[in-house]
Design a protein around this nucleic acid. Structure first.
Lengths: 234, 234
DNA sequence: CCTCAGAATTGACTTGAATCAAAAGTAAGC
DNA sequence: GCTTACTTTTGATTCAAGTCAATTCTGAGG
């Protein structure tokens, strides 16, 4: 975990949490910020550790996961540039990280001292709204994930995921999966074998073609049906 | 949905979100509060509706659930007196409720105008910390729930739930389930039949006895093992 | 450009939870 | 206290997903 030079205003500006803040405040935040570089596979923080810093992904990709009491790893989110690392944004009573964070690719991360950050943000009305907004949005995304996990059919979950990625890529027929299938399987709480078989089944029934990380949506309407739990026959 | 008289300071004081606030602020909040009474089965709000109010459970019991796109209902939380109704606490970008809320028993609820509440709370440093704290805690509880749902063995989920209830009841051997088994099954994302069979299996293997809502923990150590994914043979 | 560990696929098999159906038990509201 | 609707239990069956094992593929790093 390599520490770099001081962060710049430009680094801060790309995160919605810092939107609309006075420049003087931004500069104060900057004083408690630094950039951190991670190589592939390196851990940024582990669940249970004292939560000293709040992190934001500048470049690369990181996975945020829970080490379950069953010894397995459940990926809760795959963070890309522009995302804040949710595991580190929370202020639980014990001031400990409740999730693991590890770089999937070589990554650069903005690190801000949590105590100082909250002290500064609490002085500013827009900053306060940003935090509440961010937490609310994250909460809501997690509720959506709970809904997804409550569906017992793997095919529906995979369809929903593909549809989601399709929408995120501006409904381009052709796009790339944002992570390895192993990670996606963990995110969807299915086994990699099951994900593989689902994708094959989509290929056979002409819904979506896939090869390594490339995905081609062939029939968006049917994919949508599948994601909504219809079209069980496919 | 019957509207009652003005709420009192005493009604507000039992919620952690209002802890440590100046009395003048509390009185201002009170001006935008009212009490609402619900009979069994009545809806308080539905997902998609404009989120005008923030609600707190004073008495009774309410279920907070997501109507899934598969047409099923997934209970996210069962709220008891002292809980705020999480579905109504969020400020998502669309200002809409993202969950359903319905009374399980006849209930009394404190309703506060969201816009005014946030305006008032944002002026106070302790109030700001309370909100962030509350959201963080809720988020973390939801992460725990995601971990639970990621376990595919129903027996482990049920064991975890029983253990959780056991702890919440001060490790008393004998306690009552806080809701119907149908609701608990929905919360655990299993079918009622499966829950029933799990409980029977615990009875047969001498881990926990149960009869209607009464539960008696017979072997807490084995229950803990089961909740942690061991003791598969039982 | 090669090498090699990890990722992905595929097949065979097992298991456990969903589903359907029917009976028994509860408790809410009159 | 009765009635009735709903909840819970139980059994039989089905089928989807996990598991295990073996092979192929891929891409990260030297």
């Amino acid at each position: 975990m390599n520490q770099l030079q001081q962060a710049s205003l430009h680094d801060l500006e790309q995160f919605s949490m810092f939107e609309g803040l006075a420049e003087s405040l931004m500069n104060q935040i900057l004083e408690h910020s630094r950039l951190v570089e991670l190589s592939r596979g390196q851990a940024l923080f582990r669940q249970g550790e004292t939560a000293r810093n709040t992190y934001y992904c500048i470049s690369g990709q990181l996975k945020i996961s829970r080490s379950t009491r069953y010894g397995t790893e459940k990926i809760v989110e795959i963070a890309s540039p522009g995302d804040n690392l949710i595991g580190a944004m929370l202020f639980n009573r014990q001031r400990r990280y409740s999730l693991d964070c590890r770089a999937i690719k070589a990554s650069r991360v903005l690190s801000v001292d949590s105590t100082e950050l909250f002290k500064l943000l609490s002085l500013s009305q827009p900053a306060y709204m940003n935090i509440v907004q961010e937490l609310s949005d994250r909460f809501e995304a997690l509720i959506d994930h709970v809904e997804l996990l409550s569906v017992d059919k793997a095919k529906f979950r995979v369809a929903y995921y593909l549809l989601d990625q399709y929408k995120k890529n501006g409904r381009q027929d052709l796009f790339l999966l944002d992570s390895s299938k192993k990670n996606i399987a963990s995110y969807l709480s299915v086994q990699p074998e099951t994900l593989s078989r689902c994708l094959r089944s989509f290929k056979q029934s002409g819904i979506a073609d896939s090869h390594s990380r490339k995905v081609k949506i062939l029939d968006a309407a049917r994919l949508e049906n599948m994601a909504n739990g219809f079209d069980c026959a496919a």
